[in-house]
Nucleic acid binder design. Structure first.
Lengths: 355, 355
DNA sequence: ATATCGGTTGTAAACGTTTCCACAGGTCAA
DNA sequence: TTGACCTGTGGAAACGTTTACAACCGATAT
């Protein structure tokens, strides 16, 4: 965190030109293409960023912290952002949210953070979640960590360790949902939504397999529909799911990887003439605002993103004032919100049902 | 936009101390309390902010623009934020969103913007929408405008003129909704939601009165329910509305000031045993994502916040490169999204119905 | 041949700020 | 009274950077 950053003088020496030429090259002044190439190469070698003369005490005094969220649309991250904002304001820090379009690379994020040099940075879901090239992602994260206190929210990615990584156990929601459904008597439970490029999705998928095992549920590869994460994904997933099975092999319950998928599933079920929860129990995930207003209202899992955002900021600010990463080790329980979409217990359980 | 900002030297002269003392006073070094007071007084008088030594070309080169949104929760602003992000990315600018808790004053925003000195600033809904003290709000806006190109989105506030103020006509949605409902034969139309402290709300309320006049609708002060802007506001509004009138005086249609209010209204109507659109037509506003999934799906007005955000950024960037405010004068049509919640035409229109 | 010109470069001076250093003045104990 | 030791202060140097200025180089025009 305290190593000397290279200055324009270092770059000039490395490139064999004057500092004026380096400055012009960086700011788009008129330089010959050969000089520009030399400067760029040298800057790249030294990992130089202009603007470091904004020295530390200033950024400290300014009390800016930066947050990068993987999505603004997603209600989960929206709620988290509110928590982040609230806690930052409470503790006197100003919050700057870097807003990027989908699919921005981690290198871009790192470059921008190093340009701005806030007092600390918060990475939520991004960019550990999806990465084109793990190696450059790793390097970028390292560069950020060297320059400022960093707290990442989300499941850790193998080989990419952050100083502080805080996460609600991403499989817990699956376990709670499966426990609830099995308690109600379901043993044919489908998993709808998600995709293999998203880390949280595969974690939940794996948790699903474990729970299927634990409760001796029906093991059927066709019960897993990784169709995506939006409303259409739910519609598509259900139509494939039910199209692929004879009526008597239909699952009796669906766990949807998020509430949008659950919504799509509910619509498609309705379209196909199946009732929820009569013919199919349904559990969503995220406790999105609209779930309480659906008919039937949706049983879902609250991951408490607001509190999680708050706590991540608190952790970050403690790290900033301590000058070193602080282990916070707060655990986040997900809570099951029972509503109408699972109905009553399935059938009557007799001794024959027991293993 | 180009006046000299006061420097530490000015403050030192004004306070009658050395620049070193000023610097120490600002960064929390050891200074006597009397010096500190002198420095603070001088800084206040001159409106001094440290950090201006980050000279103009840097902020230009970095291509940071800042956006301040009045709310992150509101789906309207969320969509606008996406548009802003997209356009900023497209044109190579980095977008920083200042995230504040509800009710932050305009002075705070101005101070932060002047600290960061981005290449340009975008104010959406905030802080022209609600202001505690119009005079300080005005002064703060002026300070921002002196320091950087500024584009404000939202209805202008009397006495507070921005260099560039871009807005979708906030009354147009009311006019389109009323025209649609009247075309369907309704003449007893209620206005539910909003509150007098929000500028956009009173503009729409006034537009409602005008349209009531134009179409010779029933004029009834109890048809106007300024109960707020969330789901509960809709529930409350409808229960008062219907509680206050004999059955034959019930309105036949409701315009809700936004989709959340419409959702609440729909629920309350359902609870009271009235069907939509059978017993009551309903129009919302904002075309929030969930409206298409309601049963019945909600007729609403799309204000095109995404495009509006894009265009505001385009305008801002043109102003930045031109070095002066650019009039863009793009108009934003709201569009009526006809769905199920208004049903078919009300009754059969005979010659007697005509005025 | 010389003059002119556009493009590229380095030197050095700015910029607004922090920080090192030395000094002035005060307090306190011997 | 002296010496030691604080505290607050200003001068000046340093920081990393941009930029005005002058010099240089090669090419083209006369």
């Amino acid at each position: 965190m305290n190593e000397k950053q290279p200055t324009i003088v270092d770059v000039a020496r490395e490139a064999g030109v004057s500092i004026a030429t380096v400055s012009r090259a960086m700011t788009g002044g008129s330089v010959s293409s050969v000089s520009r190439r030399k400067v760029e190469a040298a800057a790249e070698r030294l990992n130089y960023r202009p603007g470091y003369y904004r020295s530390d005490p200033i950024k400290e005094a300014k009390h800016f912290i930066a947050a990068v969220l993987s999505s603004q649309t997603n209600p989960y991250y929206a709620a988290m952002c509110e928590g982040i904002t609230a806690e930052a304001a409470r503790s006197g820090y100003k919050l700057l949210v870097f807003s990027y379009p989908e699919g921005t690379s981690c290198e871009t994020v790192a470059a921008d953070l190093l340009d701005l040099r806030p007092a600390g940075a918060l990475l939520a879901g991004f960019p550990t979640e999806r990465s084109v090239n793990p190696e450059t992602t790793r390097a970028s994260l390292m560069r950020i960590q060297e320059a400022m206190p960093l707290v990442a929210i989300g499941p850790p990615v193998e080989g990419i360790e952050c100083a502080r990584q805080t996460l609600p156990d991403p499989s817990q929601c699956v376990r709670k949902a499966m426990a609830h459904l099995c308690m109600l008597g379901h043993r044919r439970i489908a998993f709808v939504g998600g995709d293999r490029s998203a880390r949280f999705s595969t974690i939940r998928e794996n948790a699903y397999y474990e729970e299927v095992q634990r409760y001796s549920c029906r093991r059927d590869p066709m019960y897993v529909m990784l169709t995506g994460t939006n409303v259409q994904a739910g519609e598509l997933g259900v139509s494939i799911l039910l199209g692929n099975h004879a009526r008597e092999d239909h699952p009796t319950a669906i766990f949807a990887i998020n509430d949008l998928v659950a919504l799509g599933a509910m619509r498609q079920l309705h379209r196909m003439g199946l009732s929820v929860p009569g013919d199919m129990a349904l559990v969503g995930c995220d406790n999105a605002f609209f779930t309480q207003y659906l008919t039937p209202s949706l049983t879902t899992i609250d991951l408490h993103p607001y509190e999680h955002g708050r706590s991540a900021v608190a952790e970050l600010i403690m790290s900033i004032s301590a000058g070193k990463p602080i282990a916070f080790n707060q655990s986040f329980e997900s809570t099951l919100i029972v509503r109408e979409s699972c109905g009553a217990a399935l059938g009557v359980r007799t001794f024959e049902d027991a293993p």
